[in-house]
Design a protein around this nucleic acid. Structure first.
Lengths: 213, 213
DNA sequence: CATGCTTAGATAGTGCCACTCTCCAAGGAG
DNA sequence: CTCCTTGGAGAGTGGCACTATCTAAGCATG
């Protein structure tokens, strides 16, 4: 398959594919002559993954490269590869220190972890970027006067815990070589699914309550 | 309160506050002299909201202006104001037409709506941006060969439905003038909460299963 | 009341990002 | 043989969120 056909079948312009090649998001094709290269199905698949991460998952190009390189890092076990890839994803800014709202947020999040029995040693401790994002968001809500303590967080946490069990069941069904990619793809690409479903559910519920008021 | 003090108390640089004033995200202060203006507590509150939407909620500046203007649009009822604000938020690109994966995604999402008994007339129909985002994301997952039909979507939808009931209970407790702002702030600022909790839950679950494999 | 710091407001500039354009030399097709 | 296409590389583009600079006008202090 030539560049032009890869572009055709993926719906990505040749200029953009060349850009991804330069950025190292795609392996170069097998060079046939000085001015021609051959691409295979695996290039198409990788390109679709890259596009989905960037366009649907809103992952920046440079981050996508890091995520992809974690997928193939044979020196790590599967859990660590997933962890490295997820840590590379974009996160909210780190919590502001010396701030009473942040103080309060940290406290509530710590209580939440205790109640859920989540284990810091598996990579979800206070130093992980997701933990930081959570504290930042809770602090922002607190500063604005919206309630956001353990009691409010618990239902969210219980819901996502349940969902993640189902999701990892699905991941576990993939063979070893595909498992890490599946975990990362599902993590990233189910995010817009979850958010859009939430917005739709809220719109529906808001209509039930506040239409014509 | 002078600009300098507003900056001090909000942690936002004076240059950035001036930028937000220019962009119409903040009302100008009460002009005291030709070179001085006075800001009040409501400016501080609004600034904190703007900052939270932009930094924590990742809402672009120009979008933030649209969202804020919907909050104060007295010609609409509460449900519509919330709807307009949420529609202004960033969404994934519209689904690609003439694509089998999109076709399939549309079909599955339609089945989902049927099962949930969500009502298109309340603003969550196929023409809403969130609906488009959902279809785009499901299509991307489908193209990559990950299962994403009604059966997979239902648990997510049921979970967010439940959460949105709790959330709207909270919103309903606010007085009329604050209700729309509360709804929008909670919609946007709970998104990072939900996503970071999900990533933490998945990390925890992945550790239980795949550590040292 | 002179001197120097601060302020509001406007204009232009910066750095980053995700492409996109232009060009070139080498192939291949009719 | 001629013309079109290809892969590769560098420069250019447009958008975004600030940030820096400048100016004229106050205020504050000795």
């Amino acid at each position: 398959m030539k560049l032009a056909e890869l572009s055709e079948r993926s719906g990505v312009s040749t200029a953009t594919i060349k850009y991804y090649l330069r950025e190292g998001l795609l392996q170069p094709g097998r060079r046939v002559t000085a001015t021609q290269a051959e691409y295979g199905e695996e290039h198409l698949r990788r390109l679709r993954l890259v596009r989905a991460l960037i366009q649907v998952g809103r992952v920046p190009v440079s981050t996508t490269r890091e995520v992809l390189s974690a997928l193939g890092d044979d020196s790590l076990d599967q859990h660590s590869r997933i962890g490295v890839a997820v840590e590379a994803l974009p996160h909210a800014p780190l919590p502001a220190e010396d701030d009473p709202a942040t103080e309060h947020a940290r406290h509530e999040v710590a209580k939440l972890f205790e109640r859920l029995d989540w284990d810091d040693s598996r990579g979800s401790g206070p130093s992980s970027p997701s933990y930081g994002t959570l504290v930042t968001a809770v602090a922002a809500l607190t500063r604005l006067g919206y309630p956001c303590g353990v009691e409010e967080l618990l239902p969210y946490a219980r819901a996502v815990s349940q969902l993640s069990v189902t999701e990892l069941d699905l991941v576990a069904r993939f063979p070893d070589e595909e498992r890490v990619e599946a975990a990362v793809a599902l993590t990233v690409l189910y995010e817009p699914v979850l958010l859009s479903l939430r917005r739709l559910a809220e719109t529906d519920e808001s209509g039930r309550r506040f239409m014509n008021t």
